[in-house]
């Protein structure tokens, strides 16, 4: 069983409360959970796009393979020398085979994260042990997402079902189930809705990600007023790309809010030019223009 501190850190990490996690002070280096907590801290920072900061809190001399992997991931996310870092992660995966189980799990998840970003889905799945009887819940979470991203809900579900046997009622497991529900739309999104609503009431943490997630669930359910209000609230706390993008959609569907949607989108475009929504729309815009050429427009009558 994890200690109270570590449990809390994990909870924040799982629910996407990266900001509060990264903002919290690190425990004393002598604490036995120091390395694990440090690792989550660093990963939260990486997730927030602050890889430099992550590197700065990590020890230069790597105490463990998992921290080494975090360094490599941070390096990879920074975007320079991608190949080197990928190679390093690949090496680590091999090296860690003999290390203890928990260490292995972390390294594999980190390596797979990088692989997915690199687009090496198959390698990622293999590293995570998709389809093998592993007991690595973080890996399951990743596998599920990967399967969902390639539209294999069936396989994702299978992976999840298996995890249910050994992972008991872990928070992450519930989160996985919610994610599955978001994609499959089963039972009118009732599962994700209750999960996010429940977690919102969790007094021990606050996270704009949760708010956004709930808003997205409302949005998927077609409850636009609720969705809009969730996004507005979330934007007040933290105008991150995710919330902005979701707000664009919600406003776009709401009567009389189309112009607001456009404004939000422009903001998203300006602040987060790399967000998938921005990139996707750009490519669609190009697709539209090229499709135009199929038709010749006659002279106006």
């Amino acid at each position: 069983m994890d200690s109270g501190d570590l449990y809390h850190v994990k909870q924040q990490f799982v629910l996407g409360a990266y900001k509060s996690l990264a903002g919290a002070p690190l425990p004393s280096p002598s604490s036995e959970d120091y390395n694990s907590i440090l690792q989550y801290h660093a990963r939260a920072l990486i997730s927030l796009g602050e890889a430099d900061k992550a590197l700065s809190i990590l020890p230069a001399e790597d105490a463990s393979l998992s921290l080494k992997a975090v360094r490599a991931l941070a390096g990879y996310t920074k975007g320079d020398e991608n190949e080197t870092h990928l190679e390093q992660l690949r090496d680590l995966c091999v090296e860690v085979e003999d290390a203890e189980e928990s260490e292995q799990q972390v390294v594999k998840v980190l390596a797979a994260t990088a692989f997915v970003q690199e687009g090496e889905i198959e390698e990622a799945l293999e590293t995570l042990g998709a389809g093998t009887p592993h007991e690595n819940l973080e890996a399951t979470s990743l596998i599920v997402q990967i399967y969902l991203s390639i539209n294999r809900v069936d396989l994702a579900k299978k992976e999840f079902e298996r995890a249910k046997h050994w992972a008991e009622d872990d928070l992450l497991l519930q989160q996985i189930e919610a994610t599955l529900g978001l994609v499959s739309g089963r039972d009118s999104y009732s599962n994700p809705q209750s999960f996010f609503a429940e977690q919102m009431l969790n007094p021990s943490l606050s996270s704009s990600h949760l708010l956004t997630s709930r808003g997205v669930t409302y949005l998927l359910r077609g409850e636009l007023i609720e969705a809009n209000s969730d996004f507005e609230e979330a934007l007040k706390v933290d105008a991150n790309a995710e919330t902005l993008a979701a707000a664009v959609v919600a406003a776009g569907l709401t009567k009389g809010k189309q112009s607001e949607s456009d404004a939000l989108f422009e903001r998203l475009q300006a602040e987060y030019p790399g967000h998938p929504l921005v990139l996707d729309l750009k490519s669609k815009s190009d697709a539209f223009d090229s499709a135009l050429s199929q038709f010749t427009v006659p002279a106006l009558a």
Partner: peptide, 19 residues
């Protein structure tokens, strides 16, 4: 097109899911 899809990230450092 913009109003028919939404992104939500499910795992740290992974690209968000396309819903």
């Amino acid at each position: 097109y913009r109003s028919s899809h939404v992104y939500l990230s499910a795992n740290a450092s992974l690209p968000p899911l396309h819903l």
